[in-house]
Design a protein around this nucleic acid. Structure first.
Lengths: 217, 217
DNA sequence: GATTTACTAGACTACCTAGTCTACCATACT
DNA sequence: AGTATGGTAGACTAGGTAGTCTAGTAAATC
């Protein structure tokens, strides 16, 4: 057990024994995410996760130490830093701030529109009481950078006199809220069908926000 | 058992045997709400609810048939219809729509600021997957009327040329979102202390929204 | 093609919690 | 004060799930 395999030999780059299914952990995480999102952490049975992932419960423990470890993996997987490109863009882009804000909002929407990021948001909020560390991490890695980006765009707009004078921090919160709320919505009351389509919602939303921000003129 | 007590006699208004502690059910519900909110339905132990309510587990079953029945009671208790007065007010009030919207928003904020309504909102959202009926009820009894009220104020403002032309339904959603989001926030990431105080938040928020809605001029 | 070995499945255990049951207690009426 | 009666507590049971263990399986090398 754990001994050196007989003659590793010419194994320069290829390990002698490579795992057959590299995809397994990701599949398990995806299944877990779906169920955690739907039923919550405590109400999700590992057997069901296994079933949905097409493996058996024992296999889960091959890759994850415990249910909690799996949960951690699920959330950390979903902590996308996909918006990192925006920092440089903000520094270089010469276009007008309304468009910039519009595109940023669209990017947020796309990001949270993906099943994963949306589900993780709902999870982080729902389970914050039971997993304060995770809530903290999520807050620091997703919410804070998101707010930051929005605030910077607002400040840029103010500096260029494209936006009137508002409190950028609060404005950022208020701009973000409808986006997050919509995501939470879809992960809670999703069954109801009479939802306004995303595109129209975003357009109206941007219109409302921008008219509020733009300098009169 | 269940027989008529010996000689009800002069019991005209006072029942012969009144329960000593009318307050118990409410105390249990309050304790349950707190824990459900904090830990979620599945992770909340009835023993803990009993402990917090200052009773023992057996007593809970005196008043509620099951954990789920208790959960139902908790949510239904929190389905406040406190905003019913607004319908008449909307019909009669002659004041300007911006102020009206401001007061309505303030009322929402006060309502959700009470521990109970805020916790129930979070509960309804978090547990929607496990209790679709409750989610539905909450949606129909709280969200829909709330959106309706907002939409009516927006439409009133548009009719009176105080607001520019927007989609009232979507506007209502967008107006409501930051309010709800803030509530959810406080019930999830509440530990962090650097939150903007409610009053300033509301003021900035109203300013932003109203500037977006008001006709130029 | 045989052998080794990483990997998988599903039965098994230990623990935890919803819900029950019975002996006990405090109040209200006489 | 005594008694009847509804209310209370905490041990108990049953059921279900996280986590373990062992026998089996399919890939990789020789």
């Amino acid at each position: 057990m754990g001994l050196i395999p007989t003659m590793p030999d010419h194994s320069l780059e290829k390990p002698a024994h490579c795992r057959r299914k590299e995809a397994r952990p990701a599949e398990i995480i995806a299944a877990a995410l779906h169920l955690f999102d739907e039923k919550g952490y405590a109400a999700t049975r590992l057997d069901d996760v296994a079933l949905r992932a097409g493996v058996s419960k024992g296999t889960i423990y091959l890759y994850f130490d415990s249910k909690e470890a799996l949960f951690n993996a699920v959330v950390r997987e979903g902590l996308m830093t996909a918006l990192s490109g925006w920092e440089v863009r903000l520094a270089n882009d010469a276009g007008n701030s309304s468009n910039l804000l519009g595109e940023l909002v669209l990017d947020f929407s796309r990001m949270f529109g993906s099943d994963q990021a949306g589900a993780v948001l709902k999870l982080a909020l729902s389970e914050a009481g039971n997993f304060p560390d995770i809530a903290h991490t999520y807050h620091d890695c997703v919410i804070v950078p998101g707010i930051d980006l929005l605030r910077k765009v607002v400040m840029r707009g103010m500096a260029r006199r494209e936006f009137r004078s508002v409190n950028p921090e609060i404005a950022a919160h208020i701009i973000l809220a409808p986006l997050l709320m919509r995501v939470i919505w879809e992960h809670s009351f999703s069954c109801g069908g009479s939802v306004v389509p995303t595109e129209r919602y975003l357009a109206e939303y941007l219109d409302l926000i921008l008219e509020g921000l733009q300098s009169a003129g």
